[in-house]
């Protein structure tokens, strides 16, 4: 099983697209850092005069928004990469018949699927964690004192764990589709669902804002169907403590969260991923290749 994981890992790393991704990520981080730097400088100058609640509110709002933007985009890149790398993993090898010589070895189908999953999940979660901490470091470090939010280590650890659930779920789901569908179809389904989850999340936010339960419910149903966007929002809450903070509404915005996914949702997402892997194993077990 570990041989398959190692191969999967190495395969992605050896591809040119991996280098491109790393370079693009670095460029993104550099741009983000620059933006944070100037925003921090400007903010500090503007904020210098006022000491009242208003100034603090403004500082908190702008700062968390900027961090939110960075993390949102990171979560988006991670999601896209997780989808693209997982949907082709089995279907691609089946259609090229590359899989034949691996599967004729004394390894079981379950070991093969699990090996693939481990390799992908390890790589993508490592990527997500690195990206998360890069953003946090840039945000807290470059943006002067004015920009820095008060983040506790425990908060960070919780947030990054929830942040990593997203690629975990996406890879499990992509792998499941890829045991049965062609790469293209699996990719389309995954991306559509990702988009639907995003819109569902948006509707839920909006519903919470205007206090319409039916809208909130639509969002909740969507996050049950595909618990991706809810994980992003849970992460922002863990990071900003939005929901039970008096400042919560002020901090809320496009990239942070008003309606709160509960802890149950986190466990649901983990379970969702695990079940998807189990289904993938089951679905591949007796399939002709």
């Amino acid at each position: 099983m570990w041989t398959i994981s190692k191969l999967t890992f190495k395969e992605i790393v050896s591809k040119r697209i991996f280098m491109i991704t790393i370079v693009m990520t670095l460029i993104f981080l550099a741009l983000y850092g620059t933006a944070i730097y100037f925003a921090g400088k400007e903010g500090a100058e503007v904020g210098d005069g006022g000491q009242g609640t208003e100034a603090i509110l403004l500082q908190q709002f702008v700062s968390s928004q900027l961090l939110g933007v960075g993390l949102y985009f990171s979560s988006f890149i991670t999601a896209l990469l997780a989808i693209l790398s997982s949907v082709s993993t089995i279907s691609g090898e089946v259609s090229s018949h590359q899989i034949d010589t691996w599967l004729m070895r004394p390894i079981s189908r379950s070991q093969f699927v699990l090996g693939k999953f481990m390799g992908l999940a390890f790589l993508m979660i490592a990527y997500a964690v690195c990206l998360f901490f890069s953003i946090i470091l840039l945000h807290q470090g470059i943006g002067t004192d004015w920009m820095a939010l008060n983040l506790q280590p425990m908060q960070l650890i919780k947030a990054v764990s929830v942040f990593a659930i997203q690629p975990f779920v996406l890879i499990a789901f992509g792998l499941l589709l890829s045991t049965r569908m062609t790469t293209l179809n699996a990719g389309i389904v995954s991306i559509m669902l990702y988009g639907a989850a995003f819109i569902g999340g948006f509707i839920e936010q909006f519903g919470a804002l205007v206090e319409k339960t039916s809208l909130v419910n639509i969002g909740i149903i969507m996050s049950l169907v595909f618990p991706i966007d809810s994980m992003y929002r849970k992460m922002t809450i863990l990071l900003f403590d939005t929901a039970d903070n008096p400042l919560s509404l002020a901090q809320g915005g496009m990239f942070t969260s008003i309606s709160t996914p509960g802890n149950v949702m986190v466990w649901y997402a983990v379970l969702y991923g695990v079940v998807a892997v189990i289904l993938a194993i089951y679905s591949f077990k007796n399939r002709d290749v």
Binding site: L7, E11, S96, H97, Q98, D100, T101, M104, R105, P106
Partner: peptide, 15 residues
């Protein structure tokens, strides 16, 4: 059953 088996497929494609 596959422990002592070798196979060259008709469509040999390797990574």
């Amino acid at each position: 059953s596959r422990e002592q088996v070798g196979y060259l497929p008709e469509l040999f494609r390797y990574p």
